[in-house]
Design a protein around this nucleic acid. Sequence first.
DNA 1: AGATAATTGTGAAATAAATAACGATAAAAA
DNA 2: TTTTTATCGTTATTTATTTCACAATTATCT
Lengths: 225, 225
Amino acid sequence: MPDNQDREPIVIPKPTLDRLKLYHRLLNEVEQKHISSEEIAQRIGTNAEQVRKDLTFLKTMGKPKVGYDVETLRQELEELFGVKKTTKVILVGAGHLGNALVNYPGFENYGIEIVAVFDKDPKKIGSFIGELSVLPMQDIGRVVKRFHVEIGIICVPKESAQEVAEILVSKGIKGIWNFAPTRLIVPNDVFVVDEDMTQSLLTLKHYLEIKKKKIQESHQNAEKS
Amino acid sequence: MPDNQDREPIVIPKPTLDRLKLYHRLLNEVEQKHISSEEIAQRIGTNAEQVRKDLTFLKTMGKPKVGYDVETLRQELEELFGVKKTTKVILVGAGHLGNALVNYPGFENYGIEIVAVFDKDPKKIGSFIGELSVLPMQDIGRVVKRFHVEIGIICVPKESAQEVAEILVSKGIKGIWNFAPTRLIVPNDVFVVDEDMTQSLLTLKHYLEIKKKKIQESHQNAEKS
DNA sequence: AGATAATTGTGAAATAAATAACGATAAAAA
DNA sequence: TTTTTATCGTTATTTATTTCACAATTATCT
Ligand SMILES: NC(=O)c1ccc[n+]([C@@H]2O[C@H](COP(=O)([O-])OP(=O)(O)OC[C@H]3O[C@@H](n4cnc5c(N)ncnc54)[C@H](O)[C@@H]3O)[C@@H](O)[C@H]2O)c1
Ligand SMILES: NC(=O)c1ccc[n+]([C@@H]2O[C@H](COP(=O)([O-])OP(=O)(O)OC[C@H]3O[C@@H](n4cnc5c(N)ncnc54)[C@H](O)[C@@H]3O)[C@@H](O)[C@H]2O)c1
């Protein structure tokens, strides 16, 4: 059995990956043929060195005096994120948020197709959200098999989220997009991305707190002098 | 003019702040009187050293052999994030997502009160979302003044987001919670928190890509041997 | 009361990430 | 052509964050 460990895993650092996503978004909006690290930096709010460093994780190279070819870079990022491959997804929880998500056309551009919506509430089952009729929970297994579903979106109250996660895992789902404000416990090979909006709310509140403190302080300083 | 620069800013590092938010969420769910760094770590998915290090940015101290007093710690975090102070908020964009947000009762626990909803679509103006009737854009100034609104939520399509941000800023808003997938350009003293769901979608897609690569690789390795 | 065990707080070491520095290169100007 | 200029890729340096290690402290056990 020969060299098995020299296969470098070329893992992209998390902060870099987050910025690469922003570059990707930017390149989709840009008209020009070339773009410099400086311009990318300006438009996403970082510095050119950072951009160049980040792009070393990619194959695409820039040209001195010209910059990066927008289309080439865009395509490499698309591949990195696999947005061209359509991934089938189911959503559990046909409530307010589930409704918004199912009706959102923007996910298509990212290769996400919601193929079914599930809920446990008998009153919701059979009703329509967009084109999709809400299905009962016991249909999950069938749909997952039939459509080779890879991802599940959890849009149920936090109290039910773990329970739903376990159902999804038991039916073979390997990626979960979790909107419930709770940490899901899942097997190692299942990947969870949390979208906890209340967490970013705390960022906003914290900022207001700091600001208030600063104002107080400057008042006190004014008094002292 | 005396020492003005020795006032240490005691800035909490961003990664720490992000974890503190998770600790806060956890402490709200916990029943027991005390909790150890080890238990916090387990339940949010990090290690005990990290937890203890993070908590050095707070005043609350633990007791050897006992852990941290849940209530004390919870309250200090509440204060750090100002969740006890109610902040008045307006929302612009009475669409699918706006609807979900206005109907979400969970924000109350974080001291956020949505006091008005605005839209530019004449067909939506006057209709109700929950208790709130949708108001025309020209009323923003009045409402902001009257209720001392500090934060604006942007729930309009990305094409309109910058325009709306500028209106909000011009009316005195100092914090923006932006759901549109675009970077807003605002004055320095205005704080923007982006909630770009399509970005976390990319995390999920990227994970699937990596996974697929790994599977391919292991197949190739199997062939070779 | 003294020994033992659990758990903290923190400084030191290791790792990761960001920034700076700069030689190399391609295009544009002279 | 040669020179100048903009911009890149990469290595070195600095800064930030995490992990490690361990003395100090408090509760529990004998
Ligand atoms: N609405 C928002 O703006 C918002 C904001 C932040 C976070 N969230 C989170 O998103 C999640 C959904 O929020 P929402 O406002 O859509 O809630 P909702 O109450 O409107 O909808 C929840 C839906 O889940 C279904 N459900 C409950 N338990 C279930 C189970 N065990 N199996 C299957 N279906 C089940 C309910 O029947 C209901 O249709 C919640 O966890 C919430 O905390 C929502
Ligand atoms: N719905 C989702 O699940 C979802 C998911 C990810 C991101 N988003 C983002 O959130 C934002 C809102 O999405 P949505 O699905 O609610 O869209 P939507 O089309 O349902 O609603 C948008 C609302 O904004 C109003 N509007 C448009 N331009 C305006 C302006 N200049 N001033 C005031 N109001 C204006 C429209 O009249 C409409 O009521 C978008 O930027 C979208 O990309 C939504």
